[in-house]
Design a protein around this nucleic acid. Structure first.
Length: 463
RNA sequence: GGUACUCUGGCAGAACGGUUAUGCGUGGGCCUGCAAAGCCUAUACAAGGGGGUUCGACUCCCUCGGGUACCUCCA
């Protein structure tokens, strides 16, 4: 598999000969997550699920930043503790992302639970004279890391001349960044240099090293983390280990809205909770995967609607497949084989989910075509269904399941409707159909038989 | 201002020098008791502007222009 690497600015082969170690920068837990977060995490979810389908073992680490000024501010506003805030939003996070059908990471380390590791990390940097203590905290000396800027392609002189006026005259150099901030209040820990809390970037260096070791395979996050966050991580980690940090840097494009980045300050946030309520997980995932991950994607109701149409086709396909009972054999093997290969090839090539989706929809169309032409045999359906489900799994899409009781109830209603239809009592027959529609069950009349499909309840569809 | 990315048909979006993908939308049709869903079929001579390189460019180079992101916290 090839992945575009931000550092080398070229495609790199992912080594899958052994366990693949991935570190994804997660969220700062001070507020609700929005679909910008969702996209990044869904992209990595698909990457992970695809690799796992190939039988590759994955160690997937995603951190929670649970110590940060924003959390502290929020706690002050609400007159509560930072810990309570972060606990609340971690719970919130899992609610959102479980709802989006994102597989849980191997581990979700939190900064506050790794203070010792962070302190040890900083100690060694001080020992190496790469970090220094000032009156406000411990700083990383950027000038001691000559390669600084290699990820974001910035050069140090330009950064220095363009640096905004820094209030902190305790720093040797305006580019130096905090590893440890002195503070007496609230979330603060003892350290060899004084009471305080870690800076933002150090946690990822310390925790990725702890859980994934040196030189792990993929480090990811949103594009907006390239500078300064990931740049600083490289500086810290490579100074520490004196060996290359991550092998591949994979960055996901922003979600925009009306062409502008979705962000708190612009007030154009669409929370996952809100979108999930209205559109459900499948449509959101289809939307997030509809373009190449590295490019921005513009959020709009029209696009979600477009994906709703597609999702209905997927549902139809599923129910046609499970209800297929024909004898016909169309020799569907070769087509499926072709689609299957195209699907995988697309993902192998820098996780081209858009092309993978095209293949997937080709399968859906093929199945629906056979069904519409009354040619979908039971055996063929089995073959198609196997691939269908495999792709569904990789894409993280889920057909809502039904209880046996409900299925029986539907079958009974359909039988009754058939009787009315035979007797040409169409009013009565239509009443049953309406009743089923209210249950979000749609009937598909084939020649000589009627099948049903359960439609996912999409609130936004009603508007 | 600097750096990076980006600019494809009504919309969304691929293809990384030679097949004008694909989806949505729209028109027509099939199926149906009527619908719905689905399917079939038609539909766009598209490549930000201008130059090059080449037998041939959406794809490479130059240039001009638009957009976005980052340069402070940010997925």
């Amino acid at each position: 598999m090839k992945i575009q690497d931000t550092l080398s600015n070229s495609e790199q082969k992912l080594d899958v000969s052994k366990k693949v170690r991935i570190y994804l920068c997660g969220v700062t837990v001070y507020d609700e997550s929005h679909i910008g977060h969702a996209r990044t995490i869904i992209v990595f979810d698909v990457l992970r699920k695809y690799l796992e389908r190939k039988g590759i073992e994955i160690e997937f680490i995603q951190n929670f930043t649970d110590v940060d000024d924003k959390i502290i501010n929020r706690a002050e506003i609400e007159n509560t503790t930072a810990e309570k805030i972060s606990i609340r939003y971690i719970e919130n996070y899992f609610k959102d992302f479980d709802g989006l059908n994102v597989k849980r990471a191997t581990n979700y380390p939190k900064a506050t639970e790794h203070i010792d590791d962070i302190i040890k990390f900083i100690e060694k940097l001080i020992e190496k004279q790469i970090a220094y203590t000032s009156k406000n905290g411990v700083y990383f000396s950027v000038s001691k890391f000559p390669e600084y800027g290699k990820l974001s392609k910035k050069n140090i002189e330009e950064l220095q001349s363009g640096a905004r006026i820094d209030i902190d005259e305790a720093k040797n150099d305006p580019l130096d960044f905090a590893l440890w901030k002195f503070s007496e209040k609230k979330p603060a820990w003892e350290s060899p240099w004084g009471k305080g809390r870690p800076g933002w970037h150090i946690e990822c260096s310390a925790m990725s090293l702890k859980y994934l070791g040196e030189n792990f395979d993929i480090h990811g996050g949103g594009r907006d983390l390239i500078f300064p966050h990931h740049e600083n991580e490289i500086a810290q980690s490579e100074s520490f280990t004196e060996s290359p940090f991550a092998k591949i840097w994979m960055h996901v494009g922003m979600v925009t809205i009306n062409g502008e980045k979705m962000s708190k300050s612009l007030g154009n946030i669409k929370s996952i909770k809100h979108v999930l309520e209205n559109w459900g997980p499948n449509i959101i995932r289809l939307f997030c995967l509809s373009g190449h991950y590295s490019k921005p994607i513009d959020y709009s109701e029209e696009l979600l609607k477009e994906n709703l149409t597609k999702w209905r086709q997927v549902e139809t396909c599923y129910y046609e497949l499970i209800h297929a009972d024909g004898e016909n054999r169309e020799e569907v093997n070769s087509v499926m084989e072709k689609i299957k290969i195209e699907f995988s090839n697309a993902l192998e090539d820098d996780l081209n989910t858009h092309l993978a989706l095209s293949s997937f929809f080709q399968l859906v169309k093929e199945a629906n075509r056979l069904a519409a032409e009354e040619k979908l045999g039971k055996e063929d359906a089995k073959i198609i269904k196997k691939e269908f489900e495999s792709m569904l799994q990789v894409l993280g899409l889920i057909i809502p399941k039904m209880t046996e009781n409900k299925k029986q109830e539907i079958t009974n209603l359909i039988t009754n409707r058939e009787i009315f239809r035979k007797e040409k009592q169409f009013n009565e027959a239509d009443k049953i159909r309406d009743k089923l529609n209210e249950m979000n069950v749609e009937l598909i009349d084939h020649k000589g038989r009627t099948i049903w499909m359960k439609k996912e309840n999409i609130k936004a569809e009603k508007f």
